[in-house]
């Protein structure tokens, strides 16, 4: 008989929880660990997804923020149950208590056309020569001459991004919003990474539209892409697109957009550093999506 003790179930108190995650926990009883990453654990609970993030990761609508350091043997497929107090029990390793967690809401910002202009000028200067060689940021900022070749997703996305930019310019200037370009769904699931670049780009657009209060435009865009979410992209990307359709995304993207809108010049550079560290190019791709909205708002 083995005499070694297995580690006891480790209790963790979540300190912040997003609205989407809250809804998932309220409506779910069991599921499994769907993905394990350095920054967090994705849970598939009765076909609804949320994420337990580890120490240092950002808040967000689908995130349950904990001081978890990782290092335990939590594996994909591990069983998860949710108790009536919204305690999440993962296998026999971890219990995450969420009752005392604060509700996370996106940060707000005051802005004017003048502050926006300041922010856009600053971010454009900083992004030149900084953008990654993959993803879609090359569609928004000039690509560096040393690049050997543009990524395949760039060529696939460019016609869509051009038509989306034109649609945004006309929609933002008008009280009547026309339907988005029919090819906007082509961005779904496009490009490398866990969350494909095209999805991140759309998320950036949706969050920028929500931040400036143009929920009418984001709703029309949502109507165009929502029917294809499940079939045209993966479940993690689908999760983030759904929360973006409700105007919420990773806190760092909200802050970046807010700093640009509010012309907070001192904060833009460090925030750009944080954005560039999200995924392989996810942060850049979502910022690029936000930029085509903010540029369409730029005073002429």
């Amino acid at each position: 008989m083995r005499k070694t003790l297995v580690p006891p179930i480790r209790p963790l108190s979540a300190y912040r929880i997003g609205r989407h995650a809250l809804r998932v926990l309220a409506n779910s009883t069991r599921g499994q660990v769907a993905g394990v990453f350095k920054g967090g654990i994705y849970l598939d609970l009765d076909d609804n997804w949320c994420c337990i993030t580890s120490r240092g990761a950002s808040a967000g609508p689908a995130n349950i923020c904990t001081p978890f350091f990782g290092g335990m043997d939590i594996l994909q497929g591990c069983k998860v149950t949710v108790s009536r107090n919204r305690n999440i029990i993962i296998g026999r390793y971890l219990r995450v208590e969420t009752v005392t967690a604060d509700l996370w809401l996106p940060p707000k910002i005051d802005w004017t056309p003048k502050t926006l202009n300041l922010g856009l000028n600053a971010v454009d200067k900083m992004c030149v020569d900084s953008i990654p060689e993959c993803g879609l940021s090359g569609a928004v900022w000039p690509v560096h001459p040393r690049w050997r070749r543009l990524p395949a997703e760039y060529y696939a996305a460019m016609p869509v991004i051009r038509s989306l930019s034109a649609w945004l310019e006309s929609s933002l200037m008008s009280s009547i919003v026309k339907p988005p370009p029919t090819n906007c769904g082509d961005l779904l699931g496009l490009g490398p990474g866990l969350t494909p670049s095209g999805d991140d780009f759309l998320i950036g657009m949706l969050i920028a539209l929500a931040t400036i209060g143009r929920l009418d435009i984001s709703a029309i865009l949502g109507d165009a892409i929502e029917p294809f979410l499940c079939s045209n992209t993966g479940p993690i990307s689908c999760l983030y697109l759904k929360t973006a359709l409700n105007g919420e995304a990773n806190e760092q993207l909200h802050l970046m957009i807010n700093f640009v809108l509010g012309g907070h010049l001192r904060q833009i550079r460090p925030q750009l550093g944080i954005i560039s560290s999200i995924g392989h190019s996810s942060g850049w791709d979502s910022l690029a999506g936000a930029m085509i909205v903010l540029r369409a708002l730029r005073p002429t």
């Binding site: 490009g191 490398p192 494909p196 045209n232 992209t233 993966g234």
Partner: peptide, 17 residues
């Protein structure tokens, strides 16, 4: 070579490549 999520858009990229 590529390792990508198998979305329809990415399948098209892989096909084109």
């Amino acid at each position: 070579a590529a390792v990508m999520m198998g979305t329809p858009a990415n399948q098209e990229i892989l096909n084109n490549s």
